[in-house]
Design a protein around this nucleic acid. Structure first.
Length: 704
DNA sequence: TGGGGATTT
């Protein structure tokens, strides 16, 4: 494509060629093409490495040879990685620096090679190197690969550790793990003495857990001079990490690069989904082979666009290749997710319609063109009201670059932004770290349980607001995790050992006293993952009908208990069809069972009675929850609305609740979310009198 | 009468 690019082509030719594609009525009044103008990418804007890691994954042809032989053969391709040119220089840096910031794009090979280089250094003779990942799959896949490269059985020299699955042993020298896992290890090993080196990978993503680790690790190196730390980032914000670690040295790893030409629209596109639609067809009819990746904000949008594209592509003339559309979002069933990795059928061009999941979690090969709406759904937390909301917002410049980079993994590519260059300039430079956007109750409890009593002066790379910390402290106090002096209580410490959000951990501890552990475990497991209930738009009534046999008149908590118990009573071989028939999310249920098992093991270790009781006492179960939900309660007012017990705010029962439309004396709920108004989700009816019984310490103080 | 971006222990 010329410098003029798609813009001119689109503007001038699309009109005359518009016979190719008939637009539905609602689009007819709009301008017929998104107008682009091409902008040469500067090195700084688009600086991408090739996906060298991927070349190493194809070991199928040598799978029959011995492990050592595989390793020997892999070494050859490893040594071709750009990072190997720098190996000796890096080894010297590792020896000379206790803290190092390493910058290299995803796929440069740093995640696989750096730990192996470290393992060759003399300081690594004893102990293990930990390398943390924000996501479970990444930890497992990296460990698999590196085990192959090392010629070791997975779990031997090279292993991984993630929730529900520890594949490491005493002989493990290189351990991939999730951030959450290393954070958990801090409880029993506050100085991380098992590790000579800790590598924090993907630090640029700035997830809550990585940020917490950054703070802890900084604290630990002052107490443990032998510990080495490497912070790895794929973006150019290395100075911030360096500043955080008192001017630590920064290393850049270069690699082979594929340029990505970035195009912006001349004028803002009001309807970005429509603009995306037009762009897909413009690209398809005008640009050479190569798959297209479109970044959108959510499932609804993706499904809507998918059906329109499929519809339109029927009208493509026979001499033009067809379009093969693949949706991609987290809640998509696994089998359908796998479709994006399949090459398009002959004479087809693949179009992947994805959420942010394709920005970090999933890499698709064959993408040459990216269409970026510049938007994403972002969670925001209003600490003052204690309300979370999820809303569509512009992404950051660094996220936009990340998205564009998806076009240049294998060859030079192009990115078409559905916004103007001026809009790009107006975007914030970096994505706001998660720690500034979410409810911090669990994070604060985590800090306190690991000896960081003063959570305001913890060494945060980006400190959360005082208001947000205060809200979290208040919440923890309300459920008895903190005492009047703000220090963690015995109950709070026990809560921190349970892998649940504080409210649910509290419910479980109360269940021990109320002797209904098994029941509460089943319910908290459901509340710790995605909703079990899926309602397809076209089968809503049918789904509602199917769920009626699970419904409990007191509300959602006991309804999920019914659901789990009915599921467990079904023959293992019939469970899959049972889920289908009853509109139950199979994947979510599997997660529920994993969590349930982990909690049962915890209960057994703690010596709690966890025998299931079919004639359980509903009041005992619900009061256990109420201990965790003190701040999440509301009373019915004479006008028919619910107002929160604390703060007297309006809150409505969410339509997904079994109590929707019902009027009961008072309610407790799992969470409140702001969409069109404040809603309570996961709701159960309670007696107002229970409130004063359960939390006299808190409610008394509030009214005083 | 409404809506689950992505993660994790």
């Amino acid at each position: 494509m010329s410098k003029q690019g798609l813009a001119a082509a689109g503007a001038e030719e699309n009109g005359t060629k518009s016979g190719l594609v008939k637009r539905p009525k609602k689009h007819q009044k709009k301008r017929q093409s998104a107008e682009f103008h091409a902008v040469e990418s500067t090195k700084k804007t688009v600086n991408f490495l090739d996906d060298s890691d991927r070349k190493l994954t194809d070991t199928s042809s040598i799978s029959k040879t011995s492990v050592k032989e595989v390793a020997r053969q892999l070494l050859k391709s490893r040594m071709e990685l750009p990072i190997w040119d720098a190996k000796n220089a890096l080894l010297k840096k590792f020896r000379d620096n206790r803290v190092l910031i390493l910058v290299g794009e995803t796929g440069s090979g740093k995640s696989t090679q750096i730990p192996q280089f470290i393992n060759e250094c003399d300081f690594s003779r004893e102990g293990c190197v930990a390398i943390t990942q924000p996501r479970r799959v990444a930890a497992v896949n990296l460990a698999r690969r590196v085990a192959q490269e090392q010629g070791s059985k997975l779990g031997d020299t090279v292993g991984y550790s993630i929730r529900f699955d520890d594949c490491s042993s005493r002989s493990t020298r290189i351990k991939y793990m999730t951030d959450g896992m290393l954070l958990r290890e801090l409880i029993n090993d506050p100085l991380l003495s098992n590790y000579h080196t800790v590598i924090l990978d993907e630090a640029h993503e700035r997830t809550l857990l990585t940020d917490m680790l950054l703070g802890f690790v900084k604290k630990i190196i002052k107490k443990r001079p032998a510990l080495r730390v490497i912070v790895m980032s794929a973006t150019l914000d290395a100075e911030r990490f360096s500043d955080f670690f008192d001017g630590a040295e920064i290393c850049f790893i270069s690699g082979r690069q594929y340029p990505v030409q970035v195009h912006y629209t001349y004028a803002p596109e009001v309807d970005y989904v429509d603009a995306a639609l037009r762009s897909v067809f413009q690209l398809h009819t005008q640009l050479p082979a190569g798959d297209i990746l479109v970044f959108l904000t959510g499932q609804d949008e993706i499904e809507a666009l998918e059906s329109v594209i499929k519809d339109y592509s029927k009208q493509l003339p026979p001499n033009v290749p067809q379009l093969h559309v693949c949706p991609l979002f987290a809640s998509l069933p696994q089998e359908q997710q796998m479709q994006v990795f399949q090459p398009a059928p002959p004479n087809h061009r693949k179009v992947v319609l994805a959420t942010n999941i394709a920005e970090t979690s999933i890499t698709i090969s064959g993408i040459r063109y990216v269409i970026d709406t510049g938007l994403a759904k972002v969670k925001q937390y209003n600490a003052r009201l204690g309300l979370e909301s999820l809303s569509v917002a512009p992404i950051s410049q660094s996220a936009a670059r990340q998205r564009a980079g998806r076009a240049g993994r294998e060859a030079p590519g192009q990115c078409f932004c559905l916004y103007t260059e001026q809009d790009f300039e107006k975007m914030s430079k970096e994505t706001i770290p998660e720690i500034k956007r979410i409810d911090l109750a669990q994070a604060v409890l985590t800090l306190k349980a690991r000896g960081q009593d003063d959570v305001i002066h913890f060494d945060y790379m980006d400190p959360p607001s005082r208001e947000s910390l205060a809200r979290a402290l208040e919440h923890l106090y309300s459920i008895g995790a903190l005492g009047d002096n703000g220090k963690i209580t015995d109950i709070g410490y026990q809560m921190s050992l349970i892998p649940l959000v504080p409210s649910l951990a509290r419910a479980l501890l109360s269940a021990v006293e109320n002797d209904c552990v098994a029941e509460v475990i089943d319910i908290v497991s459901c509340l710790s993952t995605d909703s079990l209930f899926v309602s397809p738009q076209d089968k809503r009534e049918e789904a509602n009908e199917a769920w009626s046999k699970f419904r409990h008149k007191l509300g959602d908590h006991l309804t999920s208990l019914n659901t789990v118990r009915q599921y467990l009573s079904v023959n293992v071989s019939a469970r899959k069809s049972w889920c289908q028939k009853n509109f139950i999310n199979k994947r979510a249920l599997k997660t529920v069972l994993d969590i349930r098992k982990q909690l049962q093991e915890h209960a057994n270790r703690a010596g709690w009675n966890c025998t299931a009781n079919d004639n359980y006492n509903a009041e005992s179960v619900l009061c256990s929850f109420l201990h965790g939900y003190i701040t999440n309660t509301a009373l019915l007012h004479p006008d028919g609305s619910y107002k929160t017990v604390i703060g007297n705010q309006n809150v409505s029962i969410h339509p997904s609740s079994t109590l929707f439309g019902k009027k009961v004396e008072s309610i407790m709920y799992h969470e409140s979310v702001f969409t069109t108004k404040p809603y309570a989700r996961g709701v159960t009816a309670i007696h107002a009198s229970w409130l004063t019984e359960v939390a006299p310490h808190y409610l008394g103080r509030q009214s005083a």
